[in-house]
Write a protein that binds this DNA or RNA. Structure first.
Lengths: 112, 112
DNA sequence: TATAATACCTCATATAGCGATGTATAGAAA
DNA sequence: TTTCTATACATCGCTATATGAGGTATTATA
């Protein structure tokens, strides 16, 4: 079972930033990292990822640069910026708060 | 701080069902219950709630009926159905899985 | 008497992920 | 050698969903 589209909404940015916080990655690598970190639960589509990366670069959260590794085609690598780290911390806090309140409400209506 | 719209997406149904699992409520009461259970974090708008209630009733997850409490105007009460309880259990499981994978990825990129 | 809170409803708009589509390279299999 | 798959980038129309604005009406309060 992969993540329902609607649940993913609003969380793409924090997922991407979390991947890049561990080190630079290229777009395709981010997709694979998310997949492997979640046992294929997060299968982010390219139509979701690339527009996000472009917007995030525009916003200064990440920095892109072309890299030519030996024997491979050129790839666009991304590294997280200081601003990106700040935004990551903010989004992590937001996620924790969301999680807390969701669990609070869901526990109230817990099925026996 | 109230919940970002995008994070709420896909979670309205499970929040509403959780409220109704504790007992019948009318629409306005659901809004107030969510607000009080979350310290005003979940401020569900009527434009979100009522279309949801209608769709959920259509889908057989909840049952609506008009009630006239003494000294108040008529209100449309909703109670959860057996099907709704099943759906609630399914959505709770889905939330747990989503939460688990989100935390797994976010922990990887935890800011020091 | 007027204002706020209660209580219902609808609809146009904005947002965001997805599927489809396109291009191109590298490696493996046939 | 050819074909298939994985890698790697990108764009765009579609669709689902929450919201804000707008509307109607009742009850309690100032």
């Amino acid at each position: 079972m992969s993540a329902p589209t609607e649940l993913l909404k609003g969380n793409a940015t924090v997922l991407i930033l979390s991947c890049l916080a561990r080190g630079p990655l290229h777009g395709y690598g981010i997709v694979k990292a998310l997949d492997s970190m979640s046992e294929s639960y997060f299968q982010m589509r390219e139509g979701t990822l690339y527009p996000h990366l472009h917007r995030m670069e525009e916003d200064g959260l990440i920095e892109g640069y072309w890299e030519q590794a030996s024997g491979t085609r050129e790839r666009r690598m991304y590294r997280i910026t200081a601003k990106g780290n700040g935004e990551l911390a903010r989004l992590q806090a937001e996620w924790r708060k969301f999680q807390l309140n969701m669990n609070h409400v869901l526990d109230q209506g817990a099925t026996a």
